[in-house]
Computed example of a mutant assay.
Amino acid sequence: MGEAAPLPPWTEPAEACLAALRGARAAVDRDEPVAVDDLPPAAAHALSLAVADATARRDGRPLAASLAAEAGLDAPATAVPVNATVGDGSVDETVAAAEAAVADGFDCLKCKVGARGVAEDVDRLRAVRDAVGDAVGLRADANGAWRREEAERAVDALGGVALEYLEQPVAAGDHGALRALRGRGVPIAVDEAVNAPSGAEGWPDPVEEHADVAVLKPMAQGGPGATVAAARRLADRGVDTVVTTTIDAAVARAAAVHVAAAVPGGGDRAHGLATGGLLARGVVDDDPAPVADGRIAVPAGPGVAGEAFDGVV
């Protein structure tokens, strides 16, 4: 079972993904090999996940165990914490949403910033920290909205807020700004800078001089195995990995939970996998990887989720 959920700018457009999958299907019908690494990322994700799921089911073990073994990593976590996402509201709205998430059992929050002025975003984050206390992890995600000068002002003002990290404060290609923001009191994470279809700016190099954390989307990385392999390389360079989705449906989202469990230290940090509620409807009635008290248990059946997706087309 595989899934493609193309979502530019992180992956190829839907039309290109569909064309690539049709081409792969035609090659299989001709009994020709398919070069998965040559496919655009969402299409590659669908095919590589289908193969990985089939292999893990054949071997009778969860996908996370297969991924960890293939990458030479320790046994995966059995559950992963996840962050709640708090949208870009006013100070009062942001605090209310943060408090509601904590009441629902989340102990890590990611607040969206960048659509308002820097001063207002700083006020919002300070208010959230005051409201939820020091025991709750707090992250901020600008989605590349700030210019370098704005990002520097934000980082300098947020030193006392104890952010776990500030995600993609500047545009994906502004590697110089990322490097300049390191070591100023707020850890820096990258998302758009490391999740993009081929032909984009490419990863900042060396990545450990530009980021403390890499937020990896398996759909944008070309599949679960590619993502775990990237996470191992990052860990070797002192960069942590957080796993999130491109607003995937249940198949890819459950697979991403396995990825999060398999990456180095994956059970010790919150991941961005509480995204199922952003979809109008799902592909199955019962989500095999639901959020409960701010955590997701890794599906224990063979493959992605045992028989949970049997019959899903």
Rank of each mutant, 00 (worst) to 15 (best):
G303V: 06
G266V: 06
R184L: 11
G89I: 02
A256T: 09
A24Y: 06
R184Y: 04
A172S: 07
V259F: 04
D88T: 07
N83Q: 09
G301E: 12
G222H: 07
V80K: 03
A20G: 07
R269A: 06
R61C: 04
R61K: 13
A135Y: 00
T94L: 00
I296D: 06
R25D: 13
L234V: 10
L178R: 07
T227G: 01
G223C: 09
A115W: 13
R295Q: 13
V257N: 12
A154D: 08
V102F: 08
R129Q: 07
V128T: 08
G277K: 11
A100R: 15
G265H: 12
A305I: 01
A230G: 07
A96Y: 02
G173I: 01
Q221T: 11
G276S: 13
V28T: 11
L21N: 10
T275V: 08
A27C: 09
V28S: 04
L39T: 02
A77Q: 12
A101I: 10
G303M: 09
A261Q: 13
L63D: 04
A162G: 03
A270L: 07
A35I: 05
L181P: 02
G185D: 11
P169S: 12
D268Y: 01
E99N: 05
A46N: 10
V80P: 02
P187L: 03
A119D: 15
A145G: 04
V36T: 14
V304H: 03
E307C: 00
A44C: 11
G272A: 09
A256E: 01
G137L: 10
A154T: 04
L234R: 07
A250S: 15
C17W: 05
A262M: 11
A84T: 13
A65L: 13
V113N: 08
R22K: 10
V190I: 08
L21T: 12
E15S: 15
